[in-house]
Design a protein around this nucleic acid. Structure first.
Length: 369
DNA sequence: GTGATGGTGACGTACAGTAT
DNA sequence: ATACTGTACGTCACCATCAC
């Protein structure tokens, strides 16, 4: 029977007062913010009504909670099911996040291993979605994170960079509008295009994609659905959780991964894929991929960063960096007139479209390695 | 053989967020 | 306001195993 391994950032068997205080306030220690279940677990949101047994568990000001399940133990393996467990850069405050806010040691190790620059402020934007249409081609992708060094400059100045050759006054207007809406300007004066703000330097661009398994196989009647498992784990000693759906996520994700990698490459950027060893192992069981046979080529298309649970001196399982491989994506991003072209995006939007997509989001983290 | 049990993947669906 | 997309959960069918 699978069980919840970590809840709100800590192993289920840790019921210490300190940890319980974090749980009762539904905090995610990795984000340093309210747990959001890591993307799309809204459907299992629990309303803390009078009838809901969990209402008395959580702090009285909280009216709803998303089950904060980070990982699930199935057999001997622990499976990360929340992408924030592997890497999280998210900020729900108003102004600019403090440098290295809520940055975990393994996250730092991950970024260094992936080749991010040292001693410079790097901005991170989460969930950057880019939709762009030209004639019969459509681009519609969602990047988990875009990372780039930060530069203090005005939008008009930034567009003079060679990256943005061909951009127009209309583009500048779009950028100002997006930046204004996302709160990049402290006080809304005129000539916003000429005000210096914190902007990404997209000549040194990283796209970070996090792969985790999701859950499946639950059964409400047997109380193994996410809500019941969460409820029982907190209030009852026994619980059983949904199992792991290993194949679905990466099966759907893998075409996206290649398309995004191709885009990143065309923009002169680097792509970082982050995965847990258990999921990678499962992929290698069912596909031809054997990462040990992928030659290490620094500066090639893909950095695969492998994370794992590792027992520390106290015997506690903690996430840490296991290995990284810089390998060749193995497809010709210009197309090859073979069926692998199915993996490639129809066109690469101009870089200014990526900049617009970034400025539609708030700056989620400032990193300094 | 038969029924119970448990694990697994396919599929439909709910939901949030973005573009139009 | 509306259309559309990506994403993860619940349901269900299927299969292997086991006890009888």
């Amino acid at each position: 029977m699978p069980t919840i391994y970590e809840l709100f950032g800590f192993p289920m068997d840790d019921r210490s007062q300190k940890v319980e205080a974090i749980r009762k306030s539904r905090q995610c220690p990795f984000m340093g913010a309210t747990c959001d279940g890591g993307g799309n677990r809204y459907q299992t949101k629990i309303k803390l009504t009078q009838q809901e047994p969990l209402t008395h568990y959580f702090n009285s000001d909280i009216t709803e909670v998303i089950p904060g399940v980070c990982s699930i133990q199935a057999g001997k393996d622990i499976w990360v099911v929340c992408p924030r467990r592997l890497f999280a850069a998210k900020f729900d405050g108003q102004d600019i996040p403090a440098a290295n806010r809520a940055l975990q040691p393994y996250e730092r190790a991950l970024l260094i291993q992936a080749g991010l620059p040292h001693d410079t402020d790097i901005g991170a934007w989460a969930e950057v979605s880019l939709k762009h249409r030209v004639e019969d081609a459509e681009i519609n992708y969602h990047f988990d994170y875009v990372l780039a060094p930060l530069a203090v400059t005005s939008l008009r100045n930034l567009l003079k960079q060679s990256d943005f050759v061909g951009s127009t006054e209309n583009d500048l207007d779009d950028l100002v509008r997006a930046a204004k809406k996302s709160g990049y300007f402290q006080d809304a004066r005129r000539d916003l295009a000429d005000i210096s703000i914190l902007l990404p330097d997209l000549s040194n661009l990283f796209i970070l994609e996090i792969m985790t398994a999701s859950t499946s196989g639950s059964d409400t009647e047997n109380s193994t659905d996410m809500r019941s498992a969460f409820r029982n784990a907190l209030l009852v000693s026994e619980h059983s959780s949904p199992g792991i759906n290993k194949r679905q996520v990466w099966g759907r994700m893998v075409t996206q991964l290649f398309a995004k990698t191709a885009l990143s490459y065309e923009w002169g950027g680097q792509t970082i894929w982050v995965i847990q060893d258990a999921l990678l192992h499962n992929i290698e069981l069912t596909t031809r991929l054997k990462t040990v046979d992928v030659p290490n080529h620094p500066q090639r298309n893909i950095s695969l960063v492998i994370m794992h649970y590792f027992a520390d001196l106290d015997g506690r399982q903690a996430i840490s960096l296991k290995a990284a491989i810089d390998g060749d994506a193995g497809i010709d991003f210009d197309g090859s007139d073979t069926f692998t072209d199915i993996l490639l995006p129809k066109l690469t939007p101009p870089k200014v479209e990526l900049l617009k997509a970034i400025l539609r989001r708030k700056l989620d983290a400032v990193l300094r390695l």
